[in-house]
Design a binder for these strands. Structure first.
Lengths: 242, 242
DNA sequence: CGAGTTATTGACGAGAGTCAAACAACGTGG
DNA sequence: CCACGTTGTTTGACTCTCGTCAATAACTCG
């Protein structure tokens, strides 16, 4: 498995997220960091959820398999994120490293003890759970009602917004491969590819290698993402997409 | 707006759920019950989430609208369920009564005060949040990878399982109309209708009026729901679906 | 019973999936 | 440093499921 690029990238954000945006980080602070190579699994669907993880560095995908090899990626998690917060009994997903990762782990028991002891941590934990549910609902909307182009635009935007800092002159890194994107967006790899090509033809993004995207027009991405409240413009587009 | 059938039905379960399965019910106990007629809204997407609700009786749908009148139903909620638990700031959905409902409401402040005061309530609240997230993930899988038939079978099964008690000789009540089902499953009303007809042709279910379904073969529903781990049989089906 | 709503069925088309081939990126070894 | 093989991606041709539009049928309730 090869390293998919500059992890120094993620590091920048990791540092800030770990300290500020994520009070729960303190729970993981004393755990040793473990290294996980790209492609390796961190835990498996169906196993008892004995640990929670925090991603210190790198990108992780959470997925479920349903019969005959259909894979659904339910989330990508980035540096600073906590994996497994909402689990009770068994794991509902397999977590795998998309890039080389550094993670910390704590047992579920420790985590819950710490959280229920601390008045500062408890709201942070609740907050995390709420955010996760909200994100899941957004994804349901995407999967339920958006076409391929809207899905891709929404996805690119989400990535772009969460990494504004490292977005140097509109260059966005896509750490995951096309299959991962497809399984996350409920599409096939071919449709993802075609749709990116279509966006490129419209000069909205320019692919640079497999893992980078130059964002030419963020505003057009917003228009095409299907989230716009202003749909006077949108309606026109839909009429003339082909 | 018309009454869509016997609310006494839901009552049976309400009573048991309110007392046993749902410790959070105690928070709502002292609030007066309000009546909401079928079709009426309980709260609106975008408003500040000032209250949480508990459904005492009836069925509620939660939905979001995205541009040009596309509606996504993110969940149906039944007697005993708590609505709005995972909200932080603004409401992310509109809640509407599917049938005539009785609900209780408490302010978010009261709710959170009560919950953080009680060692019994806190785990129940966490548990609720986790369950909601897990449910959202299941729905993501459905929307992401299942075809129309699998979606319908999954839906019918879920309804059937959650109301086993009132499932008299395989008669299942569908309190919602076809449009609601369509918007929940990410399909159109026509596809829902056709798929039910197809299941009827296979003698798996028999529609009786618009709001009742006689379940002839629950096991075939399971097979066709796309959740089966045993997919030797499944694979054959997929090969010969048409 | 009859008007209005909701559901079903049919004909057709479009968007995404499938299968297969060409192509580009990346790492390796000469 | 460049040819090569591997892997991942793009593109093309075709199919199929589901969506759209429209007509008919079944409920529901005054």
């Amino acid at each position: 498995m090869l390293m998919q690029g500059n992890t120094a990238f993620e590091n920048v954000e990791a540092t800030s997220k770990l300290s500020c945006d994520q009070p729960l980080a303190s729970v993981f602070q004393m755990s040793a960091t473990e290294t996980v190579e790209a492609g390796e699994a961190i835990c498996w669907e169906g196993d008892a959820a004995k640990h929670l993880f925090q991603i210190v560095e790198g990108v992780v995908r959470l997925h479920r398999i349903i019969g005959e090899g259909r894979r659904v990626i339910t989330a990508f998690q980035f540096a600073g994120d906590v994996v497994g917060a909402f689990l009770q009994g068994d794991l509902l997903f397999t977590a795998e490293a998309v890039t080389d990762c550094k993670i910390r782990r704590v047992s579920r028991k420790t985590f819950h003890d710490e959280v229920s002891r601390s008045d500062a941590l408890r709201p942070a934990y609740i907050n995390l759970l709420c955010k996760e549910t909200a994100a899941a609902h957004d994804q349901m909307v995407l999967l339920s009602k958006k076409n391929a182009e809207e899905r891709l635009c929404s996805f690119i935007l989400k990535l772009a917004l969460r990494s504004e800092s490292q977005l140097k002159k509109g260059l966005l890194r896509l750490p995951m491969n096309r299959q991962d994107i497809a399984d996350y967006l409920g599409l096939t790899i071919e449709t993802v590819s075609r749709t990116i090509s279509k966006l490129a033809a419209k000069n909205i993004v320019i692919p640079e290698g497999r893992h980078d995207l130059r964002i030419v027009s963020q505003s057009r991405l917003v228009q095409l993402s299907g989230n716009s409240d202003d749909f006077s413009e949108k309606t026109c587009h839909r009429g003339s997409v082909h």
